[in-house]
């Protein structure tokens, strides 16, 4: 029988992972939705954020300062990329976008290897954050609670930004009908740059916060990017709400699947078979979910585009 404490703990970890996915998915889904742009380099910004934060944190002994530097630094890199390269690709086909952003990934991975070396960087947590809080008589790491808190705060901020402000109105209009926003005489280029920069900053935030949990490594961006793509597909391109629901769903399923699938399999499979099949099945779980969602709702759970 599964220990309920363990169950709760892993559920908690799943939510926390989902929050990280959300921070990445929120910016990227807007880029996909509004600009109809295939951007693979989003993961590179996440990696960059993680490395910068880690470096500053280690040098200054201040984790907060690390985040404070990583965010604007990555934001600047993101805006630079948008203005110099990506902007020229909006009118091109998806294939050109794929290829160019793929080139960016190669570049950034190699750049990080050149600067920081092939080994990853472990980021130590400041001792204040490195303790547990007991919730329902279960000890939970304070840092992860904070990550969830920050993620929820960002979600709230994005919600207000997108639903309540004029810029958000334009962003939403852009996601459902690009020509219309252009026709309104609004400088769509500025909105694009703004959205891209916002996405870059959120990616950096996710990367900086992921540092102490997973360590900063080369290729960390791509591994998580694929899961972020699954989140976006499930949630529906261009939908923040979809990204939030999708991210939590994928985060929880991913973590819970890895922890409990073999216990589940053992209920109806021989122990040996269960132990072989479970890891394989766990690694496929979210993709199977994606295929199912697509089968019934090809536009995702919360399609932003109408008509």
């Amino acid at each position: 029988m599964v220990d309920p404490h363990l169950l709760f703990e892993q559920l908690f970890n799943g939510v926390q992972y989902g929050i990280l996915l959300f921070l990445l998915a929120a910016g990227l889904t807007l880029v996909f939705g509004i600009m109809d742009m295939m951007n693979l380099a989003h993961g590179s910004l996440y990696m960059l954020g993680a490395y910068i934060a880690a470096t500053v944190a280690l040098a200054t002994d201040s984790f907060l300062l690390g985040i404070a530097v990583a965010l604007p630094a990555t934001l600047i890199v993101g805006i630079f990329l948008e203005v110099v390269i990506l902007r020229k690709l909006y009118d091109r086909g998806h294939l050109d976008q794929v290829l160019a952003t793929f080139g960016m990934i190669l570049f950034f991975n190699e750049l990080v290897r050149l600067i920081w070396g092939p080994a990853g960087i472990e980021v130590p947590l400041p001792s204040i954050l490195n303790q547990s809080v007991t919730l329902f008589s279960i000890p939970l790491p304070l840092y992860r609670i904070l990550v969830i808190g920050v993620g929820l705060a960002v979600a709230g901020f994005l919600y207000i930004l997108v639903v309540k402000t004029k810029i958000g109105m334009l962003i939403r209009a852009g996601a459902s009908n690009r020509e219309m926003v252009g026709a309104l005489g609004i400088d769509i280029k500025k909105i694009f740059t703004l959205v891209f920069g916002l996405g870059a900053a959120l990616a950096a935030l996710a990367g900086a916060m992921a540092g102490p949990i997973f360590a900063a490594t080369i290729g960390m961006g791509e591994n998580i990017l694929i899961q972020v793509l699954v989140v976006i597909v499930i949630g529906g391109i261009g939908s923040i709400r979809g990204a939030f629901v999708g991210a939590l769903l994928i985060g929880v399923i991913e973590i819970m699947g890895r922890s409990f699938l073999d216990d589940l399999f053992k209920l109806f499979l021989p122990v040996n078979a269960a132990e072989t099949a479970a890891p394989a099945a766990a690694s496929m779980l979210i993709y199977i979910l994606m295929a199912l969602v697509l089968f019934f709702r090809p536009q995702g759970l919360f399609p932003a585009r109408s008509g």
């Binding site: 597909v233 766990a282 690694s283 993709y287 697509l294 090809p298």
Partner: peptide, 25 residues
């Protein structure tokens, strides 16, 4: 069943699923 950006992402994800399957075998 899908088009455009969705198609790219789904083919990518399905392939990556098989990659992870290979890793876990």
């Amino acid at each position: 069943r899908t088009r455009g950006v969705y198609f790219i992402m789904i083919t990518l994800a399905l392939a990556q699923m098989m990659y992870f399957l290979g890793v876990s075998l």
